[in-house]
């Protein structure tokens, strides 16, 4: 922690940053996103297993720093979304200073004690516990015990289902959706100034929380994120209705990897999967 605070202080004192987005504890000792605007603020920075939020979402939501760059404390997975934002022209690499953190996995349910069982599933397959891209690196890697992947079995089961069974499964899940759009608000890659669901002239997506409207919204969101989602899983964590959104996003991500060997947010200079034509792209899905 001292490392993180020292680097942050130094960044403020050398006037390199306007603010730094990081994590701090509130008075109930809960870890929350926190923006430090001065070197004094940095004293409050923490990083532990409860630092679950993907702070990259604030890069496009907060106003630009008046002077200097934006500093950001980020885990390996979060850095993927920062790279994705750079790939998609939302921020410039030169405008951010990334303080990468060696991560020893994060909690699944933030209100419960961190344990092997209460570890996010994304951590099980994490290849960036030491981030692949950063300006500064802090923290140390420790041995961690990883949870069971319960979702994978569900995904396999879904794959083997008929179209009608799949429909029934998702109808039941989407039934719970209350169209609060928390999934969108928490997503670092949902940066559109006007989401298509808010477009009313004409209204392409039914805004009512009915089967039709819920399907339209959740399917459009899954399509808009396919080949783009980096798998931080914040949407599922934020969903008050506990819809297993990661099943959709993970499936789409697996298609991108298996069919096109593409992982979004791994290389700043890589052309994005969506929007770039490659003569070697598979075409066997075209009927």
């Amino acid at each position: 922690m001292k490392q993180l605070i020292d680097i942050s202080k130094e960044l403020f004192e050398s006037k390199q940053v306007g603010y730094i987005i990081g994590y701090a504890e509130d008075k109930f000792k809960r870890v929350k996103p926190f923006v430090a605007y001065s070197s004094l603020d940095t004293e409050r920075f923490v990083f532990n297993n409860n630092s679950v939020n993907n702070l990259a979402v604030y890069l496009t939501r907060l106003p630009k720093a008046k002077e200097g760059k934006i500093g950001i404390v980020a885990k390996g997975c979060d850095i993927k979304s920062i790279i994705a934002l750079i790939q998609e022209n939302q921020i410039k690499r030169d405008d951010v200073i990334i303080i990468g953190v060696n991560c020893n996995s994060v909690v699944n349910q933030i209100d419960e004690q961190f344990s092997k069982e209460n570890t996010a599933i994304k951590c099980k397959y994490c290849q960036v516990r030491t981030p692949a891209h950063y300006d500064y690196l802090v923290g140390e890697i420790k041995e961690v015990e990883l949870p069971e992947d319960k979702n994978f079995a569900i995904m396999q089961k879904l794959d083997s289902m008929s179209a009608e069974e799949k429909w029934n499964f998702w109808e039941a899940e989407f039934e719970k959706c209350v169209k609060c759009y928390a999934c969108r608000q928490v997503c670092p890659l949902c940066y559109c100034e006007q989401c298509i669901v808010d477009k009313s002239m004409p209204r392409w997506i039914d805004s009512s929380a009915t089967t039709k409207g819920n399907f339209a919204w959740n399917m459009i969101r899954a399509f808009h994120l396919s080949g783009r989602c980096i798998g931080c899983n914040e949407c599922e964590r934020a969903c008050p209705a506990e819809i297993p959104l990661s099943l959709l996003n993970r499936k789409m991500g697996m298609v991108a990897i298996n069919e096109f060997n593409y992982r979004h947010g791994t290389d700043i200079n890589q052309p994005t999967l969506i929007g770039n034509y490659n003569v070697n792209d598979k075409e066997d899905f075209i009927m």
Binding site: N89, E193, I274, G275
Partner: peptide, 13 residues
């Protein structure tokens, strides 16, 4: 221009 988010996927395609 009011709603364009500047992702430039249009430019790519």
């Amino acid at each position: 221009e009011a709603t364009c988010a500047g992702c430039f996927y249009c430019q790519k395609v």
